[in-house]
Design a protein around this nucleic acid. Structure first.
Length: 257
DNA sequence: GAGGCTCGGCGTCACTTACG
DNA sequence: CGTAAGTGACGCCGAGCCTC
C-alpha cells in the first residue's frame, strides 16, 4: 500500500491539475518547534512538535511543598470495568513528552510512606497550580519531577510494566495537556534498570510512531485532496468533450439535411 | 444554555513490508 | 531474523453546528 501510495501521489501532483488549491503546503506541526524533555536520568531529549497546553501564566514557583497523597481507587477491584475499558484506561493518556518548558510549574512531592504504585492503583493528587511535583521511588533516589499545570493529577500505575499517568487540568476537567517529563521507570525500584530501559525504548518507539502517524495522515490528506482535484479536472474535460461532441453532431446533422 | 451529532485531529496498537 | 517505517483501525477529545 505504502509502496503504491507515493508513486500515485507523485503522478497525481505532476498531473494536469490546475486548481489553485493545489500545492499549498499543509500547516502541520512546525518542524522548527522543539520541546526539550528531561528524563529521569538527567538525560534530555529534543522532541519536535507543537506545544499544546494553553497557559497564560509562565510564573514558576520552585518552592517545595508537601502534598497529601490519597489512594483513590484500585482498578483491579472494579469489576464493572471490562478488559477493554481497563486497557483503554491504561492506554488513554500515557505520559506526554510535550512539555512546554516555559509553562512548567514545579512541585515536589514528598510523601513519606508512599509505596511504589502497584498495577492498577491510582493516586489522586490535588496540587496547587504553581508547583512542581517531584517523587522518588525510594528514599535516596533522585526525585522524579512531574511537571504539571496545576489542579488535579491522577497517577495511575498500569498493570504490567507500563506505568501510566493521567493529568487533569482544572480548567477543562479533561485529561488534556498531559505533561510528563520524567521516565516512568523511576517510579519502580531503582534496581530495575532493565525495566527502565524497556520503558525508555517503548517511549522512543511510541514517539516515533506518533510522528509517523502524523506524517502518514498528512500524506493521506494530500493524496485525497489530489484525487479530488483530479476528479474535478476530469469532470471538466468530460463536460467539454460532451459539448464538443454535441456541436459536431449538430454540424453533421445540418450538413446531412 | 444544554444536549446531541458530526468532523477533524491525535495517540496508540497491531500488522505488514522493506532492509540490513 | 530483528528492526524500523508505514499504515489501517480504534477510541478519545475538542470544536462547531443544530435542535429544543
Amino acid at each position: 500500500m505504502d509502496a503504491s501510495m507515493s508513486p500515485q501521489l507523485d503522478s497525481c501532483l505532476s498531473g494536469s491539475v490546475t486548481d489553485g488549491e493545489e500545492n499549498h503546503s499543509e500547516a502541520g506541526p512546525s518542524p522548527a518547534q522543539v520541546t526539550i524533555v528531561q528524563l529521569s536520568d538527567g538525560q534530555t531529549v529534543q522532541v519536535p512538535g507543537i506545544i499544546q497546553a494553553p497557559q497564560t501564566s509562565v510564573i514558576q514557583s520552585l518552592q517545595v511543598q508537601t502534598v497529601q497523597v490519597t489512594t483513590a481507587a484500585e482498578l483491579e477491584d472494579d469489576e464493572s470495568a471490562t478488559d477493554a475499558q481497563k486497557r483503554r484506561e491504561v492506554l488513554s493518556r500515557r505520559p506526554s513528552y510535550r512539555v512546554p518548558i516555559a509553562q512548567r510549574r514545579a512541585v515536589q512531592l514528598s510523601s513519606p510512606g508512599a509505596e511504589t504504585l502497584q498495577g492498577g492503583q491510582t493516586l489522586t493528587l490535588t496540587i496547587s497550580p504553581t508547583h512542581i511535583l517531584q517523587c522518588a521511588a525510594q528514599p535516596g533516589d533522585a526525585p522524579q519531577q512531574l511537571y504539571i499545570q496545576g489542579g488535579q493529577m491522577d497517577i495511575q500505575a498500569a498493570t504490567g510494566d507500563i506505568p501510566a499517568y493521567q493529568l487533569r487540568s482544572p480548567n477543562s476537567g479533561l485529561a488534556q495537556s498531559i505533561v510528563m517529563a520524567a521516565s516512568p521507570g523511576s517510579m519502580q525500584s531503582p534496581s530495575s534498570q532493565h525495566a527502565e530501559d524497556i520503558t525508555r525504548k517503548r517511549e522512543v518507539r511510541l514517539m516515533k510512531n506518533r510522528e509517523a502517524a502524523r506524517e502518514c495522515r498528512r500524506k493521506k490528506k494530500e493524496y485525497v485532496k489530489c484525487l479530488e482535484n483530479r476528479v474535478a479536472v476530469l469532470e471538466n474535460q468530460n463536460k467539454t468533450l460532451i459539448e464538443e461532441l454535441k456541436a459536431l453532431k449538430d454540424i453533421y446533422c445540418h450538413k446531412a439535411e
